[in-house]
Design a protein around this nucleic acid. Sequence first.
DNA 1: AAAAATACAATCAGTACTGTCTGTTTTTTA
DNA 2: TAAAAAACAGACAGTACTGATTGTATTTTT
Lengths: 231, 231
Amino acid sequence: MAKASASKERKERDKSGWQAQKSAMMRDTILDAALDCFITTGYASTTTAKIAEKAKVSRGAMLHHFPSKTELIQAAVEYLHDKLLQSYASNIEKISGNLPVDERNRMGIQGYWNYLSSDLYVAYHELCVAGRTDPELQHILEDSIASFDQSISDSNAKLFPEWVARGELYELAMDITKFLMEGMAVSQIVSQKEKRVNRMIDYLGDRLEEIFHIDDDDGAIHRHSGNSGKK
Amino acid sequence: MAKASASKERKERDKSGWQAQKSAMMRDTILDAALDCFITTGYASTTTAKIAEKAKVSRGAMLHHFPSKTELIQAAVEYLHDKLLQSYASNIEKISGNLPVDERNRMGIQGYWNYLSSDLYVAYHELCVAGRTDPELQHILEDSIASFDQSISDSNAKLFPEWVARGELYELAMDITKFLMEGMAVSQIVSQKEKRVNRMIDYLGDRLEEIFHIDDDDGAIHRHSGNSGKK
DNA sequence: AAAAATACAATCAGTACTGTCTGTTTTTTA
DNA sequence: TAAAAAACAGACAGTACTGATTGTATTTTT
C-alpha cells in the first residue's frame, strides 16, 4: 500500500523537487517491503530480490540506498522497532488516567492484545526466532528488544501508578500478563484459535484485579507470590 | 552421541550381520543429526550437507536413505513427534494417580515445564515458525501437531479425571496452563530469564487449585469464566 | 562362490542469492 | 547552461545448495 502512494507522490514532489525527500520516501518504501516480506514469506526466505520486487524498485536502486543486506536488515529492524512502539502507543495512550483502575486494566489488556495480534508482532516474532541462531541478527536485535521492553515497562508504570508500589506483586502481574498474552499470540500465529482468546482475556482481567484488590482480606486462598508448595 | 555408538556397534553387528539393522541405525543417526541442526543452526539454514556432516555420513549415503530433502524433513518431523511424546510421557507418567490432586497438579505443571524446557521443544517451535510461511512444511506438520495435541489432552484427562467433568472450567484451566507455560518457554528460548519462572509456576499452581477447589464458596471474587465486564 | 541387491561415495549440472561493477538518467550546483 | 553529484538500472562473478548420475564396496541370496 505504501508503494502505490509512493509512486503517486513521486510525481507531486517533482516540482518542490527536493531529492532528499524522494530518497527518504524510497527508504520507507523499501523498508515497508522488507517487513512485508518477513510477514508473508518469513525472515529466512526474504531475499534482496524479493524485497526489491515487492517495493517495485530495481535491485540496483535498492543497493544504492542499502549497500548490503545486513545494512538493510539493520534499518528494517529499527524501522520495525519504531512502528511497534507506535502501534503499542496507539493502543494504550488513548486510555485516560482518570478512568477507574478496573477500566484501565481491561482496556490495557485489550490494547496489549490488539498490539500482539498485529502483523507487526508477527514480523517481530519472526525476527526473534531467526535471531536465536543468527548471531549477527541477534546482535542487531538485542538493543531494540531491550529498549522496547523498557518502553512498555514505562508505559505500564504510567498507566497503573497505584500498582507500581506493590513491588514484587506488580512484577508478578506484569509477568503473568506478558507470558500469558504472548503465549496466546504465538499460538495464534501458528494456528488460528480465536474462540478461546476472549475467555482467556476475561480471566486474566479478573486475576489481575484480584491480585491488586484484595491484599489484606485473607491470605489462605489468595497466595500470590509462590513458595506455597514444595521447592 | 548417537554417531559414536553407531560406528562402534557397526562392528559388533558384523557377525549377526543383518543389514536392515544397520540401515535403521543409520536412519536414526541421520535424523538425530537433523534435529540437532534444527536446534543449533535453525530450520532455515539446515542444509543436507550440514546434516550429513553432523551425522558423519557422506551426502551420497544420506541421499540413499532419504532421496530428497523433503522426505528427510518429513521423516525428521515424525521422529521428533515420537521423541516429543516420549519426553512428555517420561515427565508425566511417573505421577501416580493415587496422589492427592494438589500433588498431581504441581507435578503435572513441573513435568510440563520440564518438557517445554527441553531442546526437543526448541526444535518443535523452530519447525512451527518455519511452517507458517512454508506450505510444504506446514502440511507435513499439521498431522503431527494435531495428533500430538490430542495425546497431551488425553494424558491430562487421565491425570485429572476429577477435573474433566467440569467442562468449560476444565478447558479454561488447560488453556491457561498451555498459554502461560508456552509463553514462558518461547520467551526463554529468546533470552534466559529463569528467575521469574519459578514464581510463575507457583502462581499457576495456586490458580488451578483455586479454579477447581472453590466453586460453591462465594462467587464475587472467584469469577472464573469471563463475561464479568463488558464484551 | 557367483550373482543380485543394497549401502556408500563422489562428482556434476542447474538454480538462486549476494555483492561488485559499469553504464544511464535525473537533479543539484556553479 | 555546463559540470558534478546523486539516483537508478542491469549485467556479471563468486558462492552455496539441491538433486541426478555414475561408480565402488559390502552384504545377501542362490
